[in-house]
Write a protein that binds this DNA or RNA. Structure first.
Lengths: 195, 195
DNA sequence: CCGTACATAACAAACGTTTGGCATGTACGC
DNA sequence: GCGTACATGCCAAACGTTTGTTATGTACGG
């Protein structure tokens, strides 16, 4: 029934980790079966044994991306409202090497996502969900009187636009945008909203 | 020595246009010599006759990108200051099909640019130049009393972050972000700065 | 003729995928 | 308890295709 001489899920995660490594280093343009196998120190046969093909590799990588983003409240989940919004924005930014790798992969996925209908739809949905999360915090902040009563949907879109635009700038000029500078920009942005 | 029977520059631009077409449709992941030749209705021999190799194709495509960005259909000759800033931001956004194609290519180039040192440096420079242009308008607006006397460099970074973040959201959800909505978001963003 | 313009076609390399095989484990009739 | 049957883990090799590049050939204006 279950001849399990190795932990299937564990091994599968090893492959997934190798994919992550390749993507962080060479982007989606450099993602090949052989590169993944090489990063794993194995054959391509092993890779296809755990993932049916390249498509599944990519799909799984993007799932990981979302999962890691969701499980990122590394920063202490603070008070609700404006403080929560701030934390959500900071959690997106490339403040650490791991965050930088995540964002590099995310940004890199867009070329593919813009030309593949399935990935396109997935990305559209992802943005929807992120905006909804931001909007919750914004509405709570408004209830607490921390933000003016503008359209919370618009504010969420604006906050996400600012955050992701900052991500791209930071990725392409890490020296100009150290963690402290990014944090400062977020705080100033939020301060401008409260006026 | 001299032009033989066809206009070299004109033909070269035809190739360049085919590259543009392929990139807009299939991104950098779908850019191949054969795809370009096919879009042009010719052989790959023609393509290599005008561009030494794929690298030159890509480099030229990114030059076109910058050139077209600079020579954008000028929306209403802007008054200096805040109105100029608004125009600069609107000129970046995918308000027209051509603008959408441009941004799609630009966003798509990031996966490659993040892994290629030359393209990386070029992109970093490009952002520098854009921020400088925005900062000029911001400083003029401050001189005119249209904006508070915050650090103009920070404001330029924030404005560019917001604009480019909006670009990405709009690319992945065109129905949610028609031209009118994008314009509205820019105006609201600018209004928040003046308070 | 000669050099430019382009097509044709060949090329090795790299690609995603498939296959055959050899282990090594569990399952089970006897 | 033990031998047969079968599933899983994984490698090595080969498959056919697509890639970028290059070599060769033809047409033709100057």
């Amino acid at each position: 029934m279950s001849p399990a001489r190795t932990d299937h899920d564990s091994r599968r995660q090893d492959v997934s980790e190798a994919v992550w490594q390749v993507l962080a280093a060479h982007g989606f343009g450099g993602l090949t079966m052989r590169a993944v196998a090489s990063a794993l120190g194995s054959s391509t046969g092993l890779v296809t044994h755990y993932f049916a093909g390249k498509r599944e590799l990519i799909a799984h990588a993007l799932d990981i991306l979302e999962a890691r983003t969701a499980a990122r409240p590394r920063l202490a989940p603070p008070a609700p409202g404006l403080a929560a919004l701030r934390t959500q924005m900071l959690n997106i930014l490339p403040l650490t090497p791991e965050g930088a790798a995540m964002n590099r992969i995310w940004v890199g996925s867009w070329d593919l996502a813009l030309s593949d209908p399935d990935l396109f739809a997935a990305q559209t949905l992802r943005y929807d969900r992120i905006r909804a999360g931001l909007r919750d915090s914004i509405e709570e902040a408004q209830r607490l009187g921390e933000l003016p009563d503008d359209d919370p949907g618009r504010l969420a879109t604006t906050a996400l636009a600012f955050t992701h635009g900052l991500v791209v700038q930071a990725l392409f000029d890490p020296e100009r945008f150290p963690a402290s500078t990014q944090t400062r920009l977020v705080d100033d942005f939020l301060a401008a909203l409260t006026d």
